[in-house]
Structure formats: structure tokens, C-alpha cells
Amino acid sequence: MALVRVISSDGAAFLVSQRLAKRSGKLKTEIETFRKSSDNSEAQPEIRIVTIRAEILRLVLQWLQQHQNDPVLPANQNEQDGRGDAEMGQSQWDRDFLAPMDLGIVMELILAANHLEVKGLLDITCKLVESKITGRTVDEIRTAFKLKSDFKGNEEEQTRLENRWCVEN
């Protein structure tokens, strides 16, 4: 079985089958680039991901392994009809996978899934974020996501008025 070494930003190396790695758009391109530049077709490709640390990379690979037999989703599915994701169900495995994560890890996963071009993982992590937003007050959202208001003067009050204008009809 052809393998590939994927190295995280903090130097941890993961030995992964190429078939699995190619389910990530980014790793697929990297492997193909390596093939073209390398004389030895037997050589094992080594890919360094400078933006993703080991813990997160491990989670992405774990997710890929669980979903290795899923059909690959087209990257722009959402653009076509605007609701490609809504129809997708989430498996129990995905729910258990995401359950213990705090929002910091989730954000890193979103960044990693986006960088590595793993559409399915990006979808479920974004869905999780949406569920953390829905039904919460502004202060709860700010606390959960560790965000600070940067509105000046009466900007916030102005925005509040605009919101009311948008809702009441």
C-alpha cells in the first residue's frame, strides 16, 4: 500500500495511506505535485502542513478514515442550489466525534478542513457553530466565541434599530 508522510506544524509525522490522504483536495494536489517532481516513482511523499498542529491534524485524519467510503462532495455544491448542506444528515459517529470539542478546537478544525479542502468535515463543523449561535443572546454568543464588541458611540443602538426595522413588517 502506497503511503504518505504528513507532518504537522509542530513536527509530528503521520503515516497515512495515499488513498485516504487523497480524500483531501489539498493533499491530493501535493501528492500529485510530488509524483511529477520526483524521479523515483517508489519514493514516499512527505508533506509538511505548516498551519495545522498535530492534535488537529490527527482529528482531521481520524474523520477522513471514518468517512473514507463516502462519496466525495463537489466543492461548490452549495453554490448551485444554495441548500446542498441542509439535506445532508449527520451520522451518530460525527455527533460523538464533535461532542467533546470546545469552540476553540472547532475553529481550528474549520480552518484545517478549509485548508486541506475536506468539504464534508467543513460542513459538519460549520453546522456545529450554527447550532451554537441559534437561539442565543448576543452576550452569550460573545462569551462563547470570546469576542469583544468594537462598536463606537451609538453604533450598537443603531444596529439594533436596523434589526427591528428588518424584522417588523
Binding site: L3, A12, F14, A54, E55, R58, G104, M107, I133
Partner: peptide, 28 residues
């Protein structure tokens, strides 16, 4: 097939989420 891996803490900040990803979350 995952053979090795290790974890350590890393600070993250939602302020730094790129605009296009924030937009994607809002769109959904």
C-alpha cells in the same frame, strides 16, 4: 491508517477567523 500523533495546547481566537469562512457560516 494513523500510526502516530501527539497533542498539546494551542490558543485560538475567533477574531482571526477569515472573512470567507465567517461568511460561509452566516450563509448557512
Amino acid at each position: 491508517m494513523i500510526l502516530s500523533g501527539f497533542c498539546h495546547g494551542h490558543p485560538t481566537c475567533w477574531e482571526e477567523l477569515p472573512v470567507e469562512l465567517l461568511l460561509m457560516i452566516m450563509n448557512n
